[in-house]
Design a protein around this nucleic acid. Sequence first.
DNA 1: TTGAAAGCGCTAACAG
DNA 2: CTGTTAGCGCTTTCAA
Lengths: 337, 337
Amino acid sequence: MADVARMAGVSPTTASFALSGRTDMRISDASRARVLEAAKELGYRPNVTARSLRTKSTQTIGFVSDMITTTPFAGDVIRGALEAAYERDHLLFITEAGGDRAAEASLVHALLDRQVDAVIYAAMFTRYITPPKELYGQRVVLLNCLAPGFDAPSVVPDELQAGRDAARALLAAGHTKGIWAIGGHLAVPASPEGNIAGNERMRGMEEVLRAGGARLDGVIECDWNTQDGYREVSALLAAGHRPRALVCLTDRLSMGAYQALGEAGLSVPGDVSVISFDDQDIAAVLRPALTTMQLPHARLGRLAVELILRQGPLEAAVHRVAMPLQERDSIGTPAAE
Amino acid sequence: MADVARMAGVSPTTASFALSGRTDMRISDASRARVLEAAKELGYRPNVTARSLRTKSTQTIGFVSDMITTTPFAGDVIRGALEAAYERDHLLFITEAGGDRAAEASLVHALLDRQVDAVIYAAMFTRYITPPKELYGQRVVLLNCLAPGFDAPSVVPDELQAGRDAARALLAAGHTKGIWAIGGHLAVPASPEGNIAGNERMRGMEEVLRAGGARLDGVIECDWNTQDGYREVSALLAAGHRPRALVCLTDRLSMGAYQALGEAGLSVPGDVSVISFDDQDIAAVLRPALTTMQLPHARLGRLAVELILRQGPLEAAVHRVAMPLQERDSIGTPAAE
DNA sequence: TTGAAAGCGCTAACAG
DNA sequence: CTGTTAGCGCTTTCAA
């Protein structure tokens, strides 16, 4: 910048003001123009590191998660966050602690040592967490997790509403009987306080079903993987049950259900309708394509950085992001008796 | 740090040396101990930003890619890079340009303005690229892409060897006839210089097949998606062909092939063996589980940061990372005539 | 409207 | 073995 100032024949101060385009310290148009031209001429780029040392702001956000790779909470969250950050001229330090508390603490330190403006603390699946102590007092937003008593906003998918909407989709197609839920409330690597997604999805669904004069014939509790879907639906059919509609709590369960249904010679949605949750990649390529409640990954990531970059202090509110119904081909009218 | 020095009763210099544990400027054990204790007492953490201003090193790497979210080049690459960086006390700025050259340039600027020590330039699928001009003269490694004439090392999967190994797996199971390749050389959103992965996989395969006295009955050129696999294999069967083994150039193609085979009443691997490439998530959950050549995502990411953090100048070599055979259940002995 | 000067938190010559 | 001093590249009071 000294070079630019010299070339423009002004002081560093003037150059600084001209470059940052501030109006409170007015600079003559002539000086400003000369500075800008010199800067362009020299290919000048400000050293953000040096600026940060004075301003205390690095235009940088830290992102800490327990696991970014694994489904269903993956790259789309990051992509949404990245986009929002890019629009606001911020960069993201992405880190991943792999569920290791010590690593988590050391990552948060690494982030703080680099003077990040704020940090996003994200969980792979929606759950209660207790943030590492080095995050207390920092500007943080919780992504896909809740921490009662920790003073920060949370951004989570609106699972309750998704449960309701899934039930409505079934009702709208005429389903009132022979509805089974696969996956239930539990599932997912044991989280002490229970599985938020499972609980809310089920709660919303049962509420709407009941209001619509329908109900679940049964709820099968199992893990949320393809194998479990296959096994449980096979067992269900083997036991002589003949469901008209399956609510699978995840797309992976749906995939397993498809396999079991196919082997039993039952067609989707002719014999059995299937509605699912998550909208992972496979949902679109399954045959028939799966109707599913979409986890709004990108929007969650986006909202987290939008909140964090808002002026002023952060309110400890819970922001629920809608899970839109992704209509495809797995719901039909109920099969005849 | 001034506080620490004061508390320990030494000068900032002494504190600095003690804290950074350097031996060239020897510090008495007594002083060092006092400094360390004071630092702990005060919960002192160095300001990496300030340090960087002097040392020119930020312990930070920039990662620019055209697309991180989309398969098959996804989170695992980042995870590998993250792990390697973590082990070496570096942090990664992750960015994504979405294939937009202007965005790419501005992201590289943003990275350089923050004085990153180096940048990893990554592509979603293996191809030739021309790096943004702001990267010239910088310390960079190319990930999953090649740029002849650009002075930087590349890290790519060893597709040629993978093609050979796939052919060997088929040969080992006794397949010498009725082998079809689905996907061929082309595929993937048109890249001007051709599809590296497709070409090398095919080349390696044909080489080994020929040497083993076998050959391909046919090569079907199509895009690398599930729908294409379904459509092409359906067409192949409809045309009266009865393949004994299918080489699908991607797992998505395999998934489509499975659907077509299933509809035609053909079983895998009883009637038709399938070998595939990529080892995406679906490979393991398909029934039967898919035998496939694994894209070593994490190792690619890891190697990229290992190279970049090596002392000394970077050699413009091409590093090929092995693609291990992931044996599962889709290869059997050839069906009888 | 502009410039001199101080200083952000740290490191590194250079002297003692 | 340790302290003084300068300065990394920028912003920002304060005075002119």
